[in-house]
Simulated assay, not measured.
Amino acid sequence: MTMGRLGRVDTVLTGRAVPYTRQGTTSAIAKQAVQGPASVGFLGLEGDEQADRRFHGGPDKALHHYAFDHYEAWRGELGRQHPMLARPGAFGENLSSHGITESTLCMGDRLRIGSVLVEVSQARQPCWKLNDRFGWNGMARRVQDSMRTGWYYRVLEPGVLQVGDAIELVNRPHPAWSLARLLELLYVRTLDLDQLALALALPLTPSWRALVERRLARGEVEAWAPRFDGPQTTA
């Protein structure tokens, strides 16, 4: 694999945790574009927050990247005038770009963005907050089924990035394992035990390693409904 430029940063976004649509919940999914250089530490962008650290944020999910390339497909499916799709940020992403997707990135890829060195840690597991954000209870499942999920980075070298920075591939240790291949294994070929066993050689996050090990041990797929449905509230 030739190292080099994969794309460029089009938008950088941050958000604060605020009360969300369901009673008793908070979220920072409604992120806003920021201008100028943005500092990035081991836990992500300065000024960015995550409401529920059990499932969001932390070293393995320091930055969320979503391909703006996918927005056109979503407009075709959800309507060209859908207000969430008018600009980057619909999916709670920190970085928006053209030119790279889940099909062109691989697990463990190391990328230089500005002065920041990041590593692709996992694809996103869509949750109920996307249902509420898009006003449709099937949105989280649709994002999963489409495999247009976006992905996360862990930060290996903190630094500064901004709009216009090149996204440079520095190292690709697992060229056979695109994010798209892993997503297909997790959500389509869910009990392909041979492939699941091979996936254990990847630098999986602890939660994904546990998921793969459970499938191998039990021969069954974990329940997805709690992630899709979220907390239930009463009037």
Rank of each mutant, 00 (worst) to 15 (best):
A123T: 13
R124Q: 00
Q125M: 13
Q125C: 07
Q125H: 13
Q125S: 13
P126K: 01
C127M: 02
W128R: 08
K129C: 00
L130I: 09
L130E: 07
N131Q: 08
N131V: 05
N131C: 08
D132A: 12
D132T: 10
R133A: 11
F134T: 06
G135N: 12
G135V: 12
W136D: 15
N137V: 00
N137K: 10
N137S: 12
M139A: 09
R142I: 11
R142W: 10
R142C: 08
V143D: 01
V143Y: 02
Q144T: 14
Q144G: 03
Q144W: 03
D145Q: 15
S146N: 06
S146M: 04
S146I: 04
R148P: 06
T149I: 08
T149M: 09
G150R: 03
G150L: 06
G150H: 07
W151P: 01
W151Y: 15
Y152I: 11
Y152V: 10
Y153R: 08
Y153T: 09
R154F: 08
R154S: 09
R154L: 05
L156S: 04
E157N: 01
P158T: 10
P158V: 10
G159M: 11
G159V: 10
G159C: 10
V160C: 11
V160Y: 05
V160P: 05
L161C: 06
Q162E: 14
Q162A: 14
Q162D: 10
Q162K: 14
G164T: 01
G164Y: 08
A166Y: 00
A166P: 02
I167L: 11
E168G: 00
E168D: 13
L169W: 00
L169A: 05
V170I: 14
N171K: 12
N171E: 15
R172D: 06
P175R: 08
A176K: 11
A176W: 00
S178G: 08
L179N: 04
L179P: 03
R181F: 01
L183H: 14
L183A: 12
L185S: 06
L185G: 04
